[in-house]
Amino acid sequence: MTGAGTGLGLAWLQQGNAHATEGSHTGFAPADEEQNRLLQQLCSGKPSVSWEELLSGMGLQRLYYFVSGGKRLPAAEITTAAEQGDESATAAVALFWRIFANWAGNFALFYRPAGGIYLTGGVTNRLLPMLDRDEFISAYCDKGGMRSLVETTAVFVVTGAIAQIRDGIEGLEI
């Protein structure tokens, strides 16, 4: 289970026991050229950037700052602006989901969770209506030679109930 909210949580379940981790503080690994540029901008003046710095409310603000050319907005206003079709806010949310998918794909490789990966958290749920499922699945499965392993790991979003994003290799089932 991993969740974007005020921070980025990460835990795994084994034989009925939950194990919390601090894995979200590991170094962010960009998946494409845009994310490389983001990392370069964020590393200016500091040695590293963690996944949590991008996949949280503050992370959404950092992503908006990056895609908007230096404008600042609180996360709630970015979400509202994206819902209203603002180009920079929409781009920030889309980038958030691609990075979250990359993170979740890494999680699938680290733990190989037979029961799937569960996405939780307030930011996750608030941005869920703006999720492009096909783009998410593409970024989630983009793991080179390990793609087939990731494709077999289901991803769910925990809301009031569980909304299924992806179920195995057959593709998207809603």
Rank of each mutant, 00 (worst) to 15 (best):
V67I: 10
K71P: 01
Q35D: 12
K46V: 04
E77S: 07
A114C: 07
V150R: 00
V123T: 05
I165L: 01
E34Q: 10
Q84V: 06
P47T: 14
A75S: 11
R147M: 08
V67S: 01
H25T: 13
T153Y: 01
W51P: 01
A91G: 04
G115S: 14
Q41Y: 03
A94T: 15
S88Y: 08
G9L: 03
G168H: 05
L73Q: 13
Q84E: 15
L128E: 06
L149Q: 07
T159R: 15
L127W: 01
L13M: 13
F136S: 02
A92F: 02
G57V: 14
Q61F: 03
M58A: 08
A11Y: 07
R98E: 13
S44K: 10
G116P: 08
L60Q: 02
A18R: 11
D167N: 11
W12N: 07
G9Q: 04
T21F: 01
Y65P: 11
L128I: 05
E135H: 11
L38R: 00
Q41G: 12
L13F: 04
L42K: 15
P47N: 09
V93N: 01
L119E: 05
T79D: 02
P113Y: 04
A82G: 04
F110A: 15
A163I: 08
D86N: 10
G171P: 08
N125C: 07
D142H: 06
A29H: 12
F28C: 03
P74D: 00
W12F: 14
T80A: 10
E34V: 14
L8F: 13
G23A: 08
I169E: 01
A91E: 11
G45I: 12
M146D: 11
G144D: 13
A18P: 12
L128S: 04
S50K: 13
D132N: 15
A139N: 15
I99T: 03
L54F: 04
A81N: 11
A114G: 00
L38T: 05
L172H: 15
W97H: 05
G85L: 09
Y64K: 06
L73N: 06
A161R: 15
G122Y: 01
A108L: 00
R72H: 13
R37P: 04
L95C: 02
D32M: 06
L63Y: 04
A89K: 07
A163E: 10
G116S: 13
I117P: 02
G59I: 09
S56D: 12
C141P: 03
L109H: 07
E173N: 07
F156V: 12
V150Y: 00
C43N: 10
Q84I: 09
G168R: 06
T2V: 07
F28K: 13
S50V: 05
G122F: 03
A163H: 08
T26H: 07
A11V: 14
S148F: 08
Y140C: 00
I165Q: 02
Q40V: 06
G27W: 05
S56G: 06
F96E: 11
G168K: 05
M58L: 10
A154T: 13
A154V: 15
E53D: 10
F66G: 00
Y140L: 06
A139D: 12
A139M: 12
G105C: 04
A108D: 08
A29R: 14
G57Q: 03
L149I: 15
G70S: 07
G160A: 10
A92R: 07
R72N: 09
L131T: 12
I78L: 01
L38W: 04
W97C: 03
M130E: 06
G23D: 09
